[in-house]
Amino acid sequence: MGMFSLSAMLVAALIAIAIMSLFGDNALFMSGLLQGAWLTVQITLLGSLLAVIMATTAALFRLYGAPPLRWLAVTYVEFFRGTSALVQLFWLFFVLPLFGISMDPFSVGVLGLGLNIGAYGAEVVRGAVQGVHRGQWEATTALNMTRWQALKRIILPQAFVAMIPPWGNLFIELLKSTALVSLITMSDLTFRAKTINDTTMQTIPIFTLALLTYLVMSLTITIGMRWLERASLRGMVRGRGR
């Protein structure tokens, strides 16, 4: 969808939330939902940070690492892409303590989701780096740059632009996966919606408000990433410089 439609949806969702919280008891449980939403935002931000770090590391290991590092990266990516996010969370939450490693649910959430999305992100980073035209590498050789200088100054900045849209999708995937932490006792937005529903039975407004709140967060990410893409494309038209 275009920027205009997305912005229109964002505004419409915000207005709908505002209007709904004016009616009946809705204002009462709205504060509970917002507290949950704040936790959701925190897990999303920290998880995204971890995902970007893991993805970049794994992709560079896989592309340029020595064989053991490459092997490690492949295992990480295949393992976390091969199993369910929920299974990974449960495993971290229920099984790791048996090996003497216990974490609080918040850390499990951030770690599990960050690792999961990071594995998908690794493929995004790898594809973007490989998508940079071979001539760019050759130019850096002709200018006698080291591989690391070439990566840092020439290749990664160009790959960065190509990575923005797929990362936008992954951040939204991560946001949506945060709902899973409600199943390991975290009071995020989904958890709040479910518990408030259990006590008040105001099913329709509660779940509608929760859905709209998630929609607002997703649209914010989408619009933000579009803006970032535009900003980094300014001046540089891809595909002509080769």
Binding site: L6, I172, L180, T190, N197, F207, L211
Partner: peptide, 16 residues
């Protein structure tokens, strides 16, 4: 808009 809504919100909350 429907597709955007469904893709923007968690599957779990849709199930609920």
């Amino acid at each position: 808009a429907f597709v955007e809504l469904v893709r923007s919100t968690p599957l779990l909350i849709q199930i609920f």
